[in-house]
Design a protein around this nucleic acid. Sequence first.
RNA 1: GCCGCCUUAGCUCAGUCGGUAGAGCACCUCACUCGUAAUGAGGUUGUCCGGAGUUCGAUUCUCCGAGGCGGCUCCA
Length: 655
Amino acid sequence: MSSPALPAAVTVTVTAEQAGTTAGEVLRAAGITDSAVARVAGRLRDLAHVVDEGDVVEQVPYASADGRAVLRHSSAHVLAQAVQDLFPGTRLGIGPPIADGFYYDFLPERPFTPQDVTAIEQRMTQIVRQRQRFSRRVVSEGDAREELADEPFKLELIDLKGGADAEGADVEVDPSAAELSIYDNLAGEDLMWKDLCRGPHLPTTRDIPAFALMRTAAAYWRGSEKNPQLQRIYGTAWESKSALKTHLTMLEEAEKRDHRRLGAELDLFSFPDEIGSGLAVFHPKGGAVRRVMEDYSRRRHEQAGYSFVNSPHITKEDLFLTSGHLPYYADTMFPPIPFEGADYYLKPMNCPFHILVFKSRGRSYRELPQRFFEFGTVYRYEKSGVVHGLTRVRGLTMDDAHIFCTQEQLAAELSDVLAFVLGLLRDFGLTDFFLELSTRDDSAKFVGKPEQWEQATAALQAAADSSGLELVADPGGAAFYGPKISVQARDAIGRTWQMSTIQVDFNLPERFELTYQAADGSRQRPVMLHHALFGSIERFFGVLLEHYAGAFPAWLAPVQVVGIPITSEHDGYVQDVAVRLRKHGIRVEVDSSEDRMQKKIRNAQKSKVPFMLLAGDEDAGKGAVSFRYRDGTQENGVPVDEAVAKVVAAVEQRR
RNA sequence: GCCGCCUUAGCUCAGUCGGUAGAGCACCUCACUCGUAAUGAGGUUGUCCGGAGUUCGAUUCUCCGAGGCGGCUCCA
């Protein structure tokens, strides 16, 4: 994921004497050995690529984005070769490099077992040791079809001429190149295996320094559930054994931080089977964290000029017919409840309710922008295979806000909202952001007038630009009713999470025929902004839990202080200190169990409390306590007043 | 929803080639009263995920269902 500084690439210009030699030879002559492939005249080429005088040959270090992609792509070939060695008759799909690794899709006669994967990995090791050469050969389309007669998926790729709609397919057939190429794997002069492939590749299999197979999974051919399902094997490959190890260690770290695991270990929440898949209950400790999150958010919204509204969990279907959601999202809503002659639905979003609040009486331009906020619990029918801990649930609470404003107010409101969102996320300890601007494409799912889309997109673009953050384009990613900005945050171990979204909506005000009375007495249509900062509280909770690896800062920690009496005789003394802390709103527990004090420290440490507060004869004698902090350091003989002030200050300063 | 794997004590997991089961932690009892990550001794705990089938007998085999995990697809 995050990598140490990558070495700078060296470039060499081919001399007259070097013309007709290879890119690899030119680089070696310049003393460069660390190059997976070469960039010649701006294109990645095999080191065996023949160069002309004047060509600029650029080193592509293994530990560069391109270098890693090539070595992973070559690893994918070795994987496919191993699979076809061990399971003849297995058909090949595609095998591209991906972030941190590679995969290859297969149609085997039966799904792979874990034992198969072990065997495949061993076979790969043998192939690597054999130092087989990756040898490029340009073929005519006719020859390719003949050679690949047994590979129906490859033939389909040739038909598609690169299959721009199939992610990763362009590693097999280059849509921008006129020619098709096949890579032969040669041991000496013996052909061991071949695959339709654009390349480029490492010189030999031996040049793969370190790889590992990770897992198997199913994947639809060309990403469509209408197509046959293939068996995918994921692997990872790196420029060195130590880089591989670093990556695997990072994965272990991510696993240790998994919010589902921490949620159980720290007694924060659970998903009882009795309730149903994707429906969480928060335990007292998780509830404490959640309450602090919500309280803080409410206060900030209040300060930013939001009014609080409330709405029910179910509604008659008419509301969602008017909003236009039902036709789009019926299959991701819980099924209707027939009742008193109407169909009721659990609400999958809050916006129509807030619209009704706006619509409950006439509105004047004088009261715009009108900002409504609610912690609104919504229910969505997520398919059974996609529910995932707190990050993908069927019941979630959105910190949902809807702003009704005039066209003229839109731009200012957007940049205020963006600044508000970023400020709040920073308060929760996320500091590393980038933005994504999701716009429409020509798909039929998008509603509304093109000029409104343009106006909204321009306003979002301006707000994004003024934030100074990196902006990534996401064409086609908009909601059906309007474009959006999403804030992506990087967590403590460099993973990115989509957090807040801000959407512009001209559509709903129109569907609900919203109006306000303008200064000239005319009726005008307001614009709507949707935003949710946490997205869902459940999901944000999960992200924070992983970000902090369970060690919440003191202001969020479910238990902020654990009092530990050295012996049971000091229970009363520690209890008195706890009472004083509690008066300041500090969440404090005293461990008066029969355990020895060392065991209590261990337990408190495992529960990741920020402050352990110990007292025995030594401290009690002088009206003091001793701290042990989460990092194991200690501070002894702190007068009680000072200790209380210290804890209170940490919480108030949101540390 | 689709594919694969999984489900045994509160938790983590072992085990039974078909004869109703075990460890560590947790919990309870007793002793210990201790200064910064596990005091000792003793004890309790199970519809072996649910249902149906095969069988003299099913936690174990088969089928169906539920839940979980890894992906795919999806994500207002």
